[in-house]
Simulated assay, not measured.
Amino acid sequence: MAKFLLVLLVFGFIISHVVSIRSLNRDVIEMKEEHEKWMVKHGRVYKDEDEKEHRMEIFKNNLKLIELFNAGDHKFKLGVNQFADLTNEEFKTIYNGFKPSLKKIKEVATESSSFRYENVSVTPVSLDWRMKGAVTAVKDQSQCGCCWAFSAVAAMEGITKLSTGKLISLSEQELVDCDTAGEDEGCNGGFMDNAFEFIIKNKGLTTELNYPYKGTDGKCNTKQSAIHAASITGFEDVPSNNEAALLKAVTNQPASVAIDASGYAFQFYSGGVFTGYCGTDLDHGVTAVGYGITSDGTKYWLVKNSWGSSWGEKGYIRMERDVDAEQGLCGIAMQASYPIA
């Protein structure tokens, strides 16, 4: 009898082990299929099988992270997007190209610059510059760290519409190629105020159609750059660490803002009001194109990004507004600015 029980125990262990192996193999097969579908959807091709295996492992880990987060109670959700085969470190290095200017940081400390919207006393409960025709379609900077150029251009497109009545898609590539005199370094990062300074000195900016985006650093095409489609006369910095001041600015026009977009929650944000953890190490340039409040009373900024329409809410993110920190969530109120027509 004892031998019979022992045989049953051994047999049971073997069956259990075989089932576990089959289950594991099935999980591996399903993950490979999931990764293959994702590759097709996003046009991803790897150099060899080793690279593919490496990326699939990252993909698997990111999926687990996303599922774990979404199982919790949050005001926003994460999703599997085009960045799902990148580690967070790789993502930050490739896509976040804002470089804070030491010169501007010193100027902010003195708070000596003018602010034309200081005396604005009435701000609507919500505002969306897209609905007023002052925002072009979401663009995609691709694997080029020139978010600063997209942020500056979006703000300039907004003020051009407000001052001329025409919405014109302007050229980010012109800034990437031609704005190289100061701290701006094309795909290696830059600063929106410097972009505004270049546009003023250049007496304008050409259209995206005339100087199309390539997603790489290139030699300045001075002939195309001389064909101006829009111009600005100046720019101003919003008083630092002051969300109320930023609200006054955005009530009047889209504004360039810098944020800390380094966390995995930003990498995989897919919808809702972003209330996630983030610091104030500014590393990404975006554009505030409105604000509002949800049905549960959560105030938010409406922010246009430059990672394509498959990221976030069709290329946009709603970020919590009026938080306890004076810098704003992710530092959004630290280094905001806007062009002047």
Rank of each mutant, 00 (worst) to 15 (best):
Y300S: 05
T180D: 02
A155I: 05
K77Q: 07
Y338L: 12
I66N: 08
G272F: 10
D260I: 05
G218W: 06
F274N: 05
E49C: 01
V19I: 14
M39R: 15
K219P: 00
I15A: 11
A288G: 02
C278G: 10
Y213M: 09
S142A: 11
A155R: 04
T207H: 03
W311C: 03
E326P: 15
R116D: 04
Q327G: 07
E30W: 02
T206I: 06
S126N: 06
A336K: 11
V10G: 01
A258N: 15
E33M: 12
M131Y: 06
Y117D: 06
G276R: 06
D283W: 08
C220Y: 03
K132L: 15
T222E: 10
M56V: 06
E197N: 09
N242V: 01
S310E: 14
E197K: 15
G12W: 06
I14P: 00
A2W: 11
G263L: 08
F235G: 02
G145C: 09
P254N: 07
L170F: 03
G312C: 08
C187W: 02
Y213H: 05
L24K: 14
M334C: 02
W38Q: 07
A341N: 14
A333W: 02
R321Y: 12
I317H: 03
I332Y: 03
S23H: 11
V135P: 13
N202R: 13
D322V: 04
E30F: 01
K132I: 02
V125E: 13
C220T: 10
V250A: 09
F196I: 08
E90Q: 15
T110P: 00
E34D: 15
G145W: 00
K161Y: 05
I58K: 06
C330S: 10
V303H: 04
R22F: 13
V289Y: 01
S240N: 11
V7H: 07
I199N: 03
K47I: 15
G204W: 14
S112D: 08
E53A: 14
A149F: 05
E157M: 09
F191G: 00
A134F: 09
H42D: 01
I94M: 09
V40S: 12
S337Q: 08
T222P: 00
P212V: 07
N61S: 14
T275V: 07
K60I: 00
D85K: 09
G290I: 01
G290K: 10
S113C: 01
Q141P: 13
I200W: 04
C147F: 03
L6V: 13
K41S: 07
I199A: 14
V80G: 04
M156D: 00
V135Q: 04
V120L: 14
E49H: 04
I29D: 12
A336Q: 11
F274K: 04
Y211P: 01
V122F: 07
Q253T: 15
L5P: 00
N194R: 10
D322I: 01
